[in-house]
Amino acid sequence: MDQSTATSPITDLPARSRSTSEADTARGDDRRSRDAGALVSVDRVSQRFDAPSGPVEVLSDISLTVQPGEFRVLVGPSGSGKTTLLRIVAGLDRPSSGTVSAQTSHGRPAHGAMVPQGRSVFPWLTARDNVAYGLKLRGVPRRERRARAEALLAAVGLDGSAALYPRQLSEGMRQRVAIARSLAVDPDILLMDEPFSALDEQTRLLLQEELLRIWHDTAKTILFVTHSLDEALVLSDRISVMGTRPGRIVATIDVPFERPRSIITVRTDPRYGPLYQRLWHHLREQAPRPHDPADARELSR
């Protein structure tokens, strides 16, 4: 590896030099699915389940691409199929139709790692063994995986807690363990499913800052699911807004804030308000049609 390149303590991958994304707004699904440079291409994916009342379409004709190093957020109300889409990208579920391909720039298949909520941390393993879990499955020797796990725990600020069990950790600490556990297998893309939704406000803010730092240091690609508009804006390069019944992408919005960024600075940026409003506008359209004529008038404006 090039000596002059700054390397991250976690993965030995070159740290990125970031430029903010190009133009603005692509309305609807971004149809650049066969984009050669994309790390993940989701091409016209639909998902249907058979319910007693008949088939239910959970996802309808989803297409999106995620570029290497991109921080992409899927935002939408519950029932918009965000998690379903993430599970399909992770390979945990198979779509009813459509394809997902993931490939690095070297042409090798990209692999993702899910980062679920902190409650997914195994209660029967210590923080260290939780982080080393993926390495153990891969047959990495004990000493090596311990060393790596401890380095990762230090990277997420849990140096002193390696030997503790999850029930001895706070929810925020468990979430850090979950992030370190996914980073341990050095995935090309982190698939994060509302990882911070169970946290209190301060802890969430701290972990968001931390995640941005880790993302910047490791040059990982992140696909992040949330229902929080604020979280979507402060973290992402680009936001896919999802709608309900059936789950689909209703808008794709570029987020112009500079990198590296501080969350507080983003919130006080003059562009934050209008962007928030635009996101809300898209989501508001998804809400069940109100019968109140005043409300309906407001919508039609």
Binding site: P116, Q117, F122, Y133, L137, V185
Partner: peptide, 9 residues
């Protein structure tokens, strides 16, 4: 969620 994590790895 535990089984999902294992399968994901």
């Amino acid at each position: 969620a535990y089984r999902d994590v294992a399968r994901d790895f």
